[in-house]
Write a protein that binds this DNA or RNA. Structure first.
Lengths: 165, 165
DNA sequence: GAGCTTCTACTCGGATACGCCCTGTCCGAGTCCGGCAGG
DNA sequence: CCTGCCGGACTCGGACAGGGCGTATCCGAGTAGAAGCTC
């Protein structure tokens, strides 16, 4: 019951892309170097994001990833579900219908009480993630990161892009 | 990000034990047969519950598992954490402190905004689980299971116990 | 010098190995109840 | 009939295979931009 590191990477990358001018494409190479993570594996997470429309891709030289829509319209739940899938954290195998004391099948019309409680908890988790957008994240980040650091990052980024032309 | 089936088994077993007279011990064999699940693997889940005090064990013939404390005092979170461990669903590896643009270490005093949001969601999930007790589960089960079925189960159980003596 | 062609370099995306953890199983150690023998 | 001993059964806990998924990597398909050639 632990989320993989792809989730963390995807969120940081999405947050990063959302903080850039939207005509500024960043390649997997640069994103991987910036976050110091394995390039090809990070690419897989970004592919999931692209499939969900959270990021857009442009191929060819000077290409790369850009944010897919407004940061206010991207929730953390979108990112989690695009990378991790949408299956619930709990799956009911209906063991109440198993064993020597089971009743006839039609007697089990309602949802199992245990499963219902687990689904409620799963729903609470998802609602919490849905209530936070990338815009919220970036606002909180902006409050603690000094402007000088942002300039430094932009300079590094543009150095990376120009060196490739 | 999916809970194992041990969680489901543990919850059904705990709910079942809580619905019995508290001097009635049920062995792993009977619990496994009743739920139609692998005996030895189920035993591991019950051992986890026993370690957490959720169920009590009595060894020897006519021994087995009994509920460890009042059903009102056992939450679903207790069961999940005893079986699955207490580690958070999200682990922050602080990748914001990695890469060529990192700042000096003391600049990262606050919690990463992304991790904070994930911890909030994790907390919401746990709070939802904490708010439901085994007593709640059994009340809802009692509303849909006919009394005749309960008698049938008790008769089957006592047949199992007597056949062993 | 302008426009077209070619060519390179860069991008994404899917397909392919490795390793860990969940799943499932087995066995030995310890313990308590029930039966049996002896007084 | 009472007491002590013994065997059986039950549980616990650790140790041991198999499979699925997260992790990590590679290579091919496609495209945009740059370079070069021709007019």
């Amino acid at each position: 019951m632990v989320l993989g590191k792809q989730i963390e990477w995807a969120m940081h990358c999405a947050s990063f892309l959302a903080s850039l001018p939207e005509d500024m494409a960043v390649s997997v190479n640069v994103l991987a170097e910036y976050h110091e993570v394995p390039r090809d594996y990070l690419a897989k997470a970004l592919q999931s994001l692209a499939k969900a429309g959270i990021v857009k891709t442009t191929v060819g030289p000077r290409g790369g990833y850009t944010i897919g829509r407004a940061a206010e319209e991207i929730t953390l739940l979108d990112i989690v579900e695009s990378v991790e899938g949408e299956k619930s954290t709990f799956s009911c195998t209906e063991i109440r219908q198993k064993g020597p004391c089971k009743m006839e099948e039609k007697a089990y019309s309602g949802v199992c009480g245990i499963a219902a409680a687990m689904y409620r908890a799963d729903h609470a988790w998802r609602e919490s993630l849905r209530s936070t957008t990338l815009a919220d994240i970036n606002r909180s980040v902006n409050r603690v990161v000094p402007a000088e650091q942002k300039r430094k990052v932009m300079a590094w980024l543009e150095g990376k892009l120009s060196s490739k032309s």
